[in-house]
C-alpha cells in the first residue's frame, strides 16, 4: 500500500514540476463557483434592488456570467455538423444572436430568483479537457439538478448546461437542425434575432 502511494506522490510531483501551467489552472468548480457567487451577490445587493437599477444590474450580471461561459463553444455545439456550413461571418452573427437570445430568456429567470442556494456535488471528466460539474439549486423547496459542462480553454469555460437531464445545447441543436433542413443559415439567424 505504502510504496504505491509514495509512487503516486512522485508522479504527482513530477507533473507539478513539469507542467506548472496545467497545475496552476483553476479547477473547473472554482471558476464556476466564483462566477455563480458573483451572480448571487449581485442579486442580493441592496444597491440593485430598485427597479430603476434593472438595466445596471443586468449589465453586471452579463459581465459575471460572460467570464465563465464560452459563447462560441456553446454556439458551435448548438449547430453541430451544421457549423461547418456557415461562413465565418455567419458564425459570428449566429454566435451573437444566439448569445443575446440566451441572455434575454435566462436572465429574466435568474433575476426572479431570490434566496436560491447552490450546492456543488463534485466534478467528473467527460472527455479530454472536458468536465461535468454537478450542482443542485434549491428553488422553492425543491432541489433542481443542474450540471455544467466545461471545457479547458486555458481557463475553464461552460459550454452547456444540463437541467434535470435536459441538455440546453442538445435541445437547441434539434431545433436548429430542423430549421436548417428547410432554410438557409441567414434565415435561421433572422429567426433567432426576431425572438430575442
Amino acid at each position: 500500500m505504502l510504496p504505491i502511494r509514495s509512487f503516486r506522490c512522485l508522479v504527482l510531483a513530477f507533473f507539478l514540476l513539469t507542467f506548472p501551467a496545467a497545475a496552476m489552472a483553476d479547477a473547473p468548480t472554482d471558476s464556476l463557483k466564483a462566477s455563480i457567487d458573483e451572480v448571487l451577490t449581485l442579486l442580493k445587493d441592496p444597491a440593485y434592488q430598485d427597479p430603476s437599477k434593472k438595466a445596471a444590474l443586468r449589465e453586471k450580471l452579463i459581465g459575471a456570467i460572460k467570464s465563465v461561459f464560452n459563447a462560441e463553444e456553446l454556439s458551435r455545439r448548438a449547430l453541430g455538423q451544421n457549423w461547418k456550413n456557415f461562413t465565418p461571418e455567419q458564425q459570428k452573427r449566429f454566435t451573437e444572436a444566439f448569445t443575446t437570445l440566451l441572455q434575454n430568456t435566462y436572465l429574466d429567470k435568474i433575476e426572479s430568483y431570490t434566496d436560491e442556494a447552490v450546492n456543488y456535488l463534485g466534478e467528473q471528466p467527460i472527455g479530454e479537457g472536458k468536465v461535468e460539474v454537478k450542482t443542485t439549486i434549491v428553488h422553492q423547496g425543491k432541489d433542481i439538478p443542474l450540471t455544467y459542462r466545461m471545457i479547458d480553454k486555458g481557463s475553464w469555460k461552460v459550454y452547456d448546461v444540463v437541467i434535470e437531464g435536459v441538455s440546453m445545447v442538445q435541445n437547441y441543436r434539434q431545433q436548429f437542425a430542423d430549421v436548417l433542413m428547410r432554410e438557409s443559415p441567414d434565415a435561421l439567424i433572422d429567426k433567432i434575432l426576431k425572438k430575442s
Binding site: 489552472a25 453541430g80 472527455g127 486555458g154
Partner: peptide, 27 residues
C-alpha cells in the same frame, strides 16, 4: 487521461476550432 498535460501550450485559434474533429458528444 486526466493527468495528461492540457494542450494549452498551443494557442487555440479560430481555425482549430472550426476544423475540430467530430469527436465530441454533440456531433
Amino acid at each position: 487521461g486526466a493527468t495528461q498535460p492540457a494542450p494549452q501550450a498551443a494557442p487555440l485559434d479560430q481555425a482549430v476550432v472550426d476544423n475540430a474533429p467530430d469527436d465530441d458528444e454533440y456531433d
